[in-house]
Amino acid sequence: MSEAEHSEDAHAHDGHEHNYIRIWGILVVLLIISVVGPFIGEYTEIQAITLVTAFGIAAYKAYLVVKNFMHMTAEKAFVSYIVVTCLVFMFLLYAGTAPDVMKSEGSGWEKPLWQQQEAEYAARQAALAHGGEDGHGDDHH
């Protein structure tokens, strides 16, 4: 394709003198925090720490990559609309699907193995709780 277009494209980013290596450094630090987070979460028994360091940091890392490496915010606005629209549709899919999939039985159906597995898991948790180790595991409720 043409030289003219390329230089025009380059022009769009001239204003932003990105320090890519600095961004990479931040990403690596965030990665370390997200790996260490669960240990702190387990030690202090505060689940929220694990969740925040895992998913909050993932979201922020993704934001950094999208903004600084992909330059999405510097592009035309429609690029953000494309990406955001696709994400919104995925939340829609989740919202419409999860109420059914997350149930172990509904009108006229059930998932026997699922119920059995969850019952066994609950029993193990209860046994663990009786042993005095309250609140261990099960980060996902």
Binding site: V83, C86, L87, F89, M90, L93, Y94, T97, A98, V101, M102, K103, S104, W114, Q117, E118, E120, Y121, A122, R124, Q125, G137, D138, D139, H140, H141
Partner: peptide, 23 residues
Amino acid sequence: IVIFGGVLASYIMHRLAHGGWSE
């Protein structure tokens, strides 16, 4: 995004419903 969205959404809803998966 929608391809990965489909598989990840399916995974997350299963994961949230199954406490036992953490083991």
